[in-house]
Amino acid sequence: MSAASGATGVAPAETSPERTLAEALSRLAPRLATGATGVADLVRLSGGASQETWAFRLTGPQPRDLILRRRPDQARPGKEDLPLATEAAMIRLAAARGVPEPRVLHVLAPDEGAGEGFIMTRVEGETIGPKILKAPELETAREKFAPQCGRILAAIHAIEPGDLKLETRTAESTLKKMVDDHAEFGQDRPVFELALRWLAQNMPETPPLRLCHGDFRLGNLMMDETGVNAVLDWEGCHIGDPHADLAWLCVGSWRFGGEQPVGGMGPREELWEAYEAAGGGWVDRHAARWWEVAGNLRWGVIIEWMGGWIRAGADASVERHVIARRASEIELLLLADLTGREI
């Protein structure tokens, strides 16, 4: 891909958002590493439902591969994510607690011309669910996935956020937001209405609220032969019920065809027992089921948001259109949830 001035392979007459971004990153290069002279090989990576992820290489005596996480220039309806500076601070806090994380090197300032975001080290591994479930070299990592995730979640839920301003979410507020968002962005779907009614009638007790990741699932967990080696995408971080994180990892859409409920790779009991043994606290099985049903419906409502992004002209990508067509898949998962079946 094109690089900024100070790097190789740039067509001087080219003007594009990518080139503007590359030029801004090139100006930042000396602050990211001693002796760095610019950036090269800037490319936007696929994936990411709401934020942009860019890979690039620092040029100079010691070339280095880095990652930029950046908010899109155009707002997307329904999204209420953290400021990315807060997300960067959360990654640093998690790393200090032993959660596997990339190292945050720089948080972008408004006058730097690169938008809102932060720059971090590049961690090598796999994040694509179907590949993780099939790669022969990840067989051992898959076997220990569920208990490892239980231990990681126990560490996350023990983090004290300090003075960071985080939203508080309870079962009640989560259900209300789904009702409101479905009314605003969705269409008549009897199965969604049935799930909303079931959730209202089966509310769990509210446990002590803790810091939650908010999107802890296959796709946001990087893996190599050793297991999970990075927890990514903290944009949904909040104070809430820890069962929400435990259940979101088991939502049907995040199993990617795997037969087991925990990311397609392990049983729920292995996740819960490891979580409890690591000091995460007792797992209320009723609450875990409630949050799993809520998680399936939440993904369905997010799919409806994405339809709103398309209609608003905020995201016309092929990826977004493909995801926006998957609400019927969620209806099938919800029917299985509500009738006590695994699919």
Rank of each mutant, 00 (worst) to 15 (best):
W198P: 04
R311M: 01
A94E: 12
K144S: 12
G227L: 08
A247L: 01
P61M: 03
V283I: 00
A324S: 13
A24N: 02
A327W: 11
R255C: 03
E184L: 15
L153C: 00
A40V: 03
G6Y: 04
E126R: 09
G214T: 08
T53N: 08
I91S: 12
G240S: 01
Q74I: 12
T34S: 14
R71A: 15
E329L: 13
A33S: 15
S2C: 10
L32G: 05
D111N: 10
G281Y: 03
G308H: 00
L21Y: 01
E18I: 15
G219P: 08
R285F: 03
G129H: 07
G295Q: 00
F145P: 05
L211A: 04
K144W: 10
I303S: 06
I330R: 02
M306L: 11
Q148L: 07
T174K: 11
A40L: 03
G115E: 04
R31L: 13
E184M: 12
E137D: 11
P204A: 02
R70W: 09
D224P: 08
R285E: 14
H213P: 07
E329P: 04
W254D: 02
E331V: 05
E167G: 06
V262R: 04
P61R: 12
T86A: 08
R70N: 11
R122S: 10
D81H: 15
A94L: 12
A109S: 13
F185T: 03
M1G: 15
E23N: 11
V43P: 08
T37Q: 14
N220P: 05
A314K: 10
D181Q: 14
R57L: 06
R64M: 12
Q260P: 07
Q62H: 14
D181W: 10
L164N: 04
V251C: 15
E116Y: 01
P63I: 02
V43A: 14
D163E: 15
L32Y: 05
L68E: 10
R197L: 12
A277M: 10
A33C: 02
A277R: 12
L199A: 01
V301Q: 07
I343Y: 14
N202P: 05
G236L: 15
F118S: 02
W305F: 13
C149V: 12
T34Q: 13
D73M: 13
A141R: 00
G38S: 07
R298P: 00
I67M: 10
L93K: 15
R289M: 10
R76C: 06
E23I: 03
D73W: 11
P261G: 04
G60P: 00
V10G: 07
L66G: 05
V104I: 13
E160N: 13
V293R: 05
T127C: 13
G60E: 01
A183I: 02
V99T: 13
T34V: 10
G219V: 08
Q62L: 14
L221H: 09
L211F: 14
E80I: 09
D41P: 07
A11D: 14
W198Y: 03
W198S: 04
L218N: 10
H213I: 06
M223Y: 04
A327I: 06
Q51Y: 09
T86S: 13
S317T: 14
E235Y: 08
K165V: 15
A324E: 07
L93P: 04
V251N: 05
P63V: 05
E116M: 02
D233P: 04
V191M: 14
I119P: 00
L108C: 08
A324Y: 09
L175N: 02
A327C: 09
G48N: 03
Q201P: 09
E331W: 07
G258H: 02
S26W: 01
